[in-house]
Simulated scan of single mutants.
Amino acid sequence: MRPDVVTFWHGPLDRLRQTCLRSQVAAGHKVTVYSFDTIPGLPDGVGNAEAEAILPHAFSERLRPPQPDGSWRDWTTLQFSDFFRMRLMAENTGLWLDADVLLLKPVELDVTKPYFAWERPRQLGNSVLYLPPRDPIVTAFENLLARDELTLDWLALRHRLTFALRRLGGGSNRLSDIRVAIFGPAALTALARRAGELQHALPKQSFYAVHAEPRLFFEPTDFSKLIADPAIIGLHVSPKGRGGQKPIAGSLYAWAAERFGTR
């Protein structure tokens, strides 16, 4: 089936994310962005839903204290979205796509099975994610949210040691401070392995062909093989600060902006 697409966004949308959201609509998906505030510049055809009903804003304070003005600090948005996508899976809302996933074709999936892809040789990506609502991975996150402390029972040994040493040394007692992706791809990979679900993972080329090399997207290059490759369903762009830049002529980004109407 062709699922609805859901995601979370906090703050203004840049040019790249507008392009990617338009590509998701163009692929024939119903797209909904969850947020706490109204999002200026949301593309036509993209819905907006209240995030508070899925995961309260106050949960962010369990990750790290806000700035004096109440705004979120450094990693908060990324880690909050790691939990938010799992809550969307629990609510059976559809397929999660990061707002910087450019779709080249529609996504078709079996709603009884997990849907994700390898981002690296030994790590799954969570930028593209579907899990049945009663999947063991979803249950693990629901159980985690119910605890007083966000202590992962699937935490890798090296992270357990790092956390223990920090606490003994008088450092942070928040697991969220260990690394930015502690609740993201590393957690998804560990839980998928524990649940015996790694066999469902799609090849890296499905969505992560340019993820580690943003130059292939933002800089002039021969991208004809990328857009013609039948194995590539979409591209997680990972802009690394380039999301607001104007597309450069001859780049894959310029092609996408022209195709999906963002200039």
Rank of each mutant, 00 (worst) to 15 (best):
Y115I: 03
N126L: 08
P230Y: 09
R179M: 06
L144T: 07
L191A: 05
L161M: 10
E108M: 08
A195V: 01
V101N: 12
L124G: 03
V107T: 12
V180P: 00
D100G: 00
S127W: 00
R174N: 05
R160S: 09
G169C: 08
L95N: 12
L168F: 10
N143P: 00
A187H: 03
Y130V: 08
P106L: 13
D222P: 05
L144F: 11
L191M: 14
L131K: 06
P185L: 08
R122T: 14
T151C: 09
E119M: 07
L155Y: 02
W154N: 05
G125H: 02
D177I: 00
D229K: 13
V180I: 13
D135A: 08
A186H: 07
Q199N: 14
R179I: 10
E142M: 06
V128H: 05
K105C: 01
E197W: 01
N126C: 13
D153C: 03
E197T: 08
L129M: 12
A140I: 02
F163M: 04
H200P: 04
Y115H: 14
G170V: 09
R167W: 10
E149M: 13
R167S: 09
A117W: 00
N143L: 07
H159G: 05
P185H: 02
D177Q: 10
P133R: 15
E219P: 12
V111A: 14
E142I: 00
A140R: 07
A192Q: 03
L129N: 03
K105N: 01
F218R: 09
D110H: 10
L152T: 07
F218K: 09
H200R: 10
P133T: 08
W118G: 13
D98S: 08
L198I: 10
D100T: 11
L168E: 00
L202G: 03
L175M: 15
L188F: 05
T162R: 15
T93Q: 15
W154S: 09
R160I: 07
P230E: 09
A164Q: 12
L97R: 01
S172A: 13
G125Q: 07
W154G: 04
F141H: 05
V180Q: 11
H200T: 10
E119S: 05
A228N: 15
I178W: 00
N173L: 08
L161D: 07
G94D: 10
R179H: 10
G170W: 14
P132D: 04
A201H: 00
A187F: 01
S206E: 04
A195R: 02
P132Q: 11
N143E: 14
E119P: 02
L188G: 07
G184T: 02
R158H: 12
H159V: 02
G125W: 04
W118K: 06
L124V: 05
F163Y: 14
T162Y: 08
S206R: 12
L161V: 13
D229A: 14
L95E: 04
R179V: 05
R134T: 15
Y115W: 14
D148N: 13
V107L: 08
W118R: 09
D135K: 13
L104C: 06
R167P: 08
P203G: 09
A140D: 10
K225D: 15
H211P: 00
L157W: 06
D148C: 01
G94R: 01
A117Y: 00
R120V: 01
D222S: 05
A164H: 11
I182Y: 04
V138W: 03
A146F: 02
E108P: 00
